[in-house]
Amino acid sequence: MSSMAPTLHVVPPPTRQPVIESQVIGTLVFIVTEIMTFAGLISGLVIVKANHLGPWPPPDQPRLPIEATGFNTLVLLASGVALFQAWRAFKRKPLDAKKPFALAIGLGLFFVVFQGFEWVRLIGEGLTLTSGALGAFFYLIVGAHALHAVVAIVLLCVFYRRLTRLELKPGTFLGAQMFWYFVVGLWPILYVQVYL
């Protein structure tokens, strides 16, 4: 991303040592918006659930895979732990972070692909966006999360490449971690609200 030739710049005198790196602040501010967006989605689901007459989930709709997704939740949490291990290794010796970093990406990918297979199965069973409130909210909320997971994994891959070339800056890594922890930490909440 920083493709501009450094010779063109007159680097300004350092103004002050930031307490928190700019990338981290930027990411945190962005995450606030994201949290509120998901809060909006979840509150919508909660209101619809509360106003729903009869049992929830509606008996005429396909069952959501509670156990399989529970396992998948653990996989995603493990991915978060792996990234944290990568950060600890990074602080000691950057190249040591490669293995746990790759593991975090791999587990994240597993999570998304596993979800994809679940979706295909559920669509086959007749749970679609238009089949009712359950299907609509399921695909909306889980899909929104999956979108974030995919974007985050792509970013992590970019940063992994930088890591192998020793170009990854600690601030960027921290920002990336914040975003991934958001994606990981959000999921159990969604799991409880949507699946259970």
Binding site: V29, T33, G40
Partner: peptide, 9 residues
């Protein structure tokens, strides 16, 4: 940024 999330949803 704290308020726009629900509207985006």
């Amino acid at each position: 940024m704290a308020s726009v999330g629900p509207l985006i949803a």
